[in-house]
């Protein structure tokens, strides 16, 4: 397991400052803003440090992405960067090819998945803070009851009367939680559509306050969903285990 060669560029401003960023080519020192290859010597370049996943794929920061276009662009970029094509090149080029491809596959994995895409966009604006799972306030009471029922089920024996009743109650809980999750999804989709229209009409280099407020609301929904996912999973595995 060898360490990978490390190469860092000079510090740059935030990705959304709208100014064009340049970097000297690591090989010929030509100063350019070329996304992928140096326009002077054609050597492969590191991704511009402060460009983000959306930019690499040539997209704006809309949340709806044409999956076919995404895949096509992913294939095009893979053909540009993949280590298979750099096997016979210099170690520097091989390293850049490896690191760029590693980032590219990660970017594709995230952009492909609508939820991961929103989460990534939030991270871009807020910095990499972990997102806490949080229970929706209006479900506090239900969740409290669910916890109790899960405990009861854990301590009850299969032949005991009442087990079936608890199971049935938990099944109802499961449905309720799933329905709430679906409702949150609808809400999330609506916000994403609104975000996109705000993004399309954006004429300033920075995101508007309204956009940021939208992201906050989406963040709230994601943290609710994170919590719901966990509770749904808990109910499912309890029902499975205590059959």
């Amino acid at each position: 397991m060898g360490a990978i060669q490390n190469k860092t560029g000079p510090a740059r401003g935030p990705f959304f400052d709208g100014e064009s960023v340049t970097r000297p080519c690591w090989s010929c020192e030509h100063d350019g803003d070329d996304l992928y290859n140096c326009s002077n010597c054609d050597k492969i370049q590191h991704f511009l440090k402060d460009n983000d996943y959306f930019t690499w794929f040539g997209f704006d920061h809309s949340l709806s992405i044409d999956q076919d276009a995404l895949e096509k662009q992913y294939h095009t970029l893979s053909r540009k960067f993949h280590p298979d094509y750099f096997q016979q090149r210099t170690p520097e080029e091989q390293t850049i090819s490896l690191e760029n491809t590693a980032q590219l596959t990660q970017a594709y994995r995230i952009l492909k998945d609508p939820k991961k895409r929103v989460r990534y966009l939030i991270g871009l604006i807020e910095g990499d803070k972990p997102m806490e799972a949080e229970a929706p306030a209006e479900l506090f009471e239900d969740i409290f009851e669910i916890q109790e029922r899960l405990e009861t089920l854990e301590n009850i024996r299969a032949e005991d009367a009442g087990q079936e009743a608890v199971r049935q109650e938990l099944k109802n809980d499961l449905e309720k939680m799933q329905a709430y999750h679906d409702k949150e999804d609808v809400q999330l989709n609506r916000l994403a559509v609104e975000w996109d229209s705000l993004e399309k009409s954006r004429n300033k280099p920075t995101f508007s306050d309204e956009q940021k407020a939208h992201l906050q609301r989406m963040k709230k929904i994601l943290s609710h969903e994170g919590y719901l996912d966990r509770i749904i999973q808990n109910i499912q595995s309890a029902l499975e285990k205590n059959k």
Partner: peptide, 28 residues
């Protein structure tokens, strides 16, 4: 710390001290 799985499916690790910007040594 960056964990990179290369095209062979083998793990590579590198570490960077963000204060100094220096590469941080890693013993495996």
């Amino acid at each position: 710390v960056t964990f990179l799985i290369d095209a062979d499916g083998i793990l590579n690790v590198k570490a960077k001290d963000l204060r100094s910007g220096r590469a941080q040594s890693v013993e495996v």
